[in-house]
């Protein structure tokens, strides 16, 4: 067996991804043109903090593939990768940060981890938008601005909300 994954890790990643799917149904806010704020990032981040960046990125991959199977909009082969597995895999990078000092969780360290992972996800979404428009829209449109505004409008609130909740949930889970 691949030494990277213990059975327990695999079971936890599976359960965390299932949780992400469930949380994605609890929309906190919906944008008029698609895009919504939910806590789907939370379980993937918790796996990243618990088992490290590799496991975090893997759970992102599993989550992205499931979203793809549940009905994806594929309009370009590159967009397929950039819209589904890749942005969620980026969330796993939160696991690269150490979030503890003397065994207690530091809010500021979690903040940087969530921010970095969230911004990487945003970056991939922006790039995906640019690729879509450069292959379907006429040249000369300001695609970067449009894509950044569209994706940022729901991802930045998502990052803030996720940070607030991840902090409370991690602290509470620690006590139990």
């Amino acid at each position: 067996m691949d030494k990277k994954f213990t059975t327990r890790m695999m079971a936890e990643i599976g359960a965390a991804v299932a949780l992400a799917v469930v949380l994605n149904f609890l929309k906190l806010w919906r944008m008029p043109q698609g895009g919504s704020v939910s806590l789907e990032m939370l379980p993937i981040l918790i796996i990243a903090f618990r088992w490290g960046a590799g496991a975090g990125m893997f759970s992102g991959l599993v989550y992205g593939l499931l979203q793809l199977m549940f009905g994806a909009y594929i309009i370009h082969p590159v967009q397929l990768i950039m819209d589904y597995p890749l942005p969620y895999m980026m969330l796993g990078t939160a696991g690269l940060f150490s979030i503890r000092e003397n065994d207690t969780i530091k809010p500021l360290k979690i903040f940087w981890a969530v921010l970095a992972a969230g911004l990487l996800r945003l970056l991939v979404h922006i790039l995906s938008g640019v690729i879509f428009f450069s292959s379907y829209a006429p040249k000369g449109q300001n695609v970067w601005v449009y894509s950044a505004v569209y994706n940022g409008s729901f991802l930045i609130p998502t990052i803030i909300v996720t940070y607030v909740v991840v902090l409370i949930v991690m602290k509470t889970l620690e006590k139990k």
């Binding site: 691949d2 990277k4 695999m10 079971a11 990643i13 991804v17 893997f58 599993v62 499931l66």
Partner: peptide, 19 residues
């Protein structure tokens, strides 16, 4: 890790209705 990947996907699929 293709088998591990599909095992995790299967576990997730199994857990979604329960959760």
């Amino acid at each position: 890790p293709a088998s591990e990947l599909s095992m995790m996907m299967t576990i997730a699929l199994r857990f979604i209705p329960t959760l």
